[in-house]
């Protein structure tokens, strides 16, 4: 474990993103998220989320405004059906993990999704990422499906789901059929 992990982080601030903050934070966000990725996302992907759902993105900043953690999400009707929130990316800097920062970031984005009338919330994590799985399970998510060889490294993923509201039974359970969005495993 690195030195940074031994010293508790000084006060962190949790800040909601806004497109006006792109110049200050976007490169740090990209850096933090792509650290663990073998294939980076183009800047277009980040803007795809941040421009449309900046209010669902939260950043954990230390006293010097360094980016320690970030969560990026979206919220839109799922195939013409329920309003579905989706946690796309979650990252916490090495040395700051295991302190509940990721949980706090996820809670913040969940709160906004629920306030904005989400019916359900989904995400994927790598089946080997026990820390992330625990994080979501503690909040009330269930594993809804195992996605075979979902990631580039050949690992499978679990789709996690959280139901916010009961749906009418007529809602078709077909949401797992198509090709999945590629999304990184959140690191907790």
């Amino acid at each position: 474990m690195s030195q940074a992990a031994l010293t508790a982080p000084t006060e962190l601030r949790y800040v909601q993103y806004h497109s006006s903050k792109e110049k200050i934070y976007l490169s740090a966000i990209r850096q933090l998220i792509s650290d663990d990725l073998s294939e980076p996302y183009s800047i277009y992907v980040y803007r795809y989320f941040l421009y449309q759902w900046g209010d669902l993105c939260f950043m954990a900043l230390d006293e010097q405004d360094n980016l320690i953690g970030v969560v990026i999400s979206k919220l839109e009707p799922h195939r013409g059906g329920p309003m579905r929130g989706y946690i796309a990316m979650l990252a916490v800097r090495q040395g700051y993990r295991g302190k509940g920062i990721a949980t706090e970031l996820v809670r913040k984005t969940l709160d906004v999704m629920i306030e904005r009338d989400a019916d359900e919330i989904a995400l994927e994590t790598e089946v080997t990422n026990t820390a992330a799985m625990k994080l979501y399970e503690r909040l009330g998510f269930l594993r809804s499906k195992r996605l075979h060889r979902y990631y580039l490294n050949g690992n499978s993923a679990f789709r996690f789901m959280l139901l916010v509201k009961e749906h009418p039974a007529a809602y078709e359970y077909d949401d797992e059929a198509q090709a999945q969005l590629p999304i990184r495993p959140p690191s907790a």
Binding site: L139, G140, F141, L162, L163, V164
Partner: peptide, 14 residues
């Protein structure tokens, strides 16, 4: 019960 979910909702999902 868990913070963002009720037993009945999780059952429905399952």
């Amino acid at each position: 019960p868990l913070p963002y979910s009720t037993p009945a909702l999780r059952y429905s999902l399952r």
